[in-house]
Amino acid sequence: MVILAGSTATLGSVGIAAAQEAIFFALAVLVAGMGAGFASPALVELVQRNTATARGAQLQSIVNSGTGFGVVAAGGLP
């Protein structure tokens, strides 16, 4: 899952940077977003295993917002 998440995020980010037309840009954004989707279940499991129940919900919110933010930030790289 980690390899799939990293691969789709990377491929999508490269596509975003290289896109010359709106349709290719939109497709690349979808592929990059899949990276966040693939990473999220693994991160949820890590949080559940390694944190106290009381902080679990707060940390899950951070994980879920962080993966999407990472894709957006990577799309803005030169």
Rank of each mutant, 00 (worst) to 15 (best):
Q48K: 14
L46M: 12
I23S: 14
R49H: 13
A9Y: 01
A19Y: 10
T51P: 01
T10D: 07
A54W: 07
F69D: 00
V47Q: 01
T51Q: 06
L59G: 04
T10W: 11
A19D: 10
A9M: 12
N50P: 07
A28N: 06
A54N: 04
V31W: 05
G6A: 08
A17G: 14
A32F: 01
G12H: 03
G68F: 06
A42K: 09
G6R: 05
A36H: 03
E45C: 11
G75F: 02
S61A: 15
P78T: 00
S7P: 04
I3M: 13
F25Q: 03
S40L: 13
A32Y: 03
A22E: 11
Q48F: 13
T53K: 13
S40F: 10
F69S: 06
V44A: 11
V29S: 02
T67C: 02
A32Q: 04
A52W: 06
F69E: 01
E21I: 13
V71Y: 02
L27H: 06
L27Y: 04
G68E: 08
E45A: 15
A52R: 08
M1S: 12
N64S: 13
Q58A: 15
A26Q: 12
A22V: 12
P41R: 05
G66L: 15
F25E: 04
V72L: 14
L46Q: 11
E21D: 15
I3R: 13
G37N: 00
G56T: 15
V63E: 03
S65C: 07
G56N: 13
S40P: 02
Q60S: 09
F69A: 09
L30P: 02
S61D: 10
P78E: 01
L11G: 07
V29Q: 03
N64R: 00
E21M: 09
A18D: 06
V2R: 14
E45S: 15
F24M: 07
V14K: 05
G37R: 00
T10K: 06
A73V: 15
S40I: 04
A57K: 12
V47E: 05
S13G: 10
V71F: 04
G37E: 01
E45L: 14
N50L: 13
A54Q: 11
L4W: 08
A32T: 00
R49P: 06
A9D: 02
A19P: 07
G37H: 01
Q58T: 14
I23M: 11
G15T: 00
F25T: 01
G66I: 10
A26Y: 09
Q48G: 11
L4S: 10
A36L: 05
A54F: 04
I16G: 03
L59V: 08
T67H: 00
A9G: 06
V14I: 14
T10E: 08
A74I: 05
V71I: 15
N50S: 14
E45I: 10
A42P: 01
G75A: 13
A19G: 10
L59C: 04
G70K: 04
T8P: 07
E45H: 13
T51H: 00
Q20W: 05
F25K: 04
G6M: 06
A42R: 08
L11Y: 13
G12F: 03
N50A: 12
A18G: 03
F25V: 00
S7N: 11
L77F: 13
L30K: 07
L30Y: 10
L43E: 07
M1F: 15
A26T: 06
R55C: 12
G37S: 02
